[in-house]
Amino acid sequence: MSGVSRRIIETIEESEFPKEIKDMLKALLNVELRNSHIKSPLYGKDYDRIIMETAETRRRQESK
């Protein structure tokens, strides 16, 4: 499995969610795909980082 399937990426792209949510979903799916090769993955740090980054992007957009 080289990456998240094209169908999944295309469906996320064509949806009407805000861009930062689309990016967050893609990043989280990549974490899950990477972790699927590990028996007991530690996902917490990756998730927290991605959620914080999305929150930051959203704050920046709102302040514009």
Binding site: V4, S5, R7, I8, L28, L29, E32, L33, S36
Partner: peptide, 14 residues
């Protein structure tokens, strides 16, 4: 097969 299990894990972890 369709990698939809990734979504299940994502939802569970979020």
């Amino acid at each position: 097969i369709s990698q939809l299990d990734l979504f299940e894990k994502l939802i569970e972890h979020l």
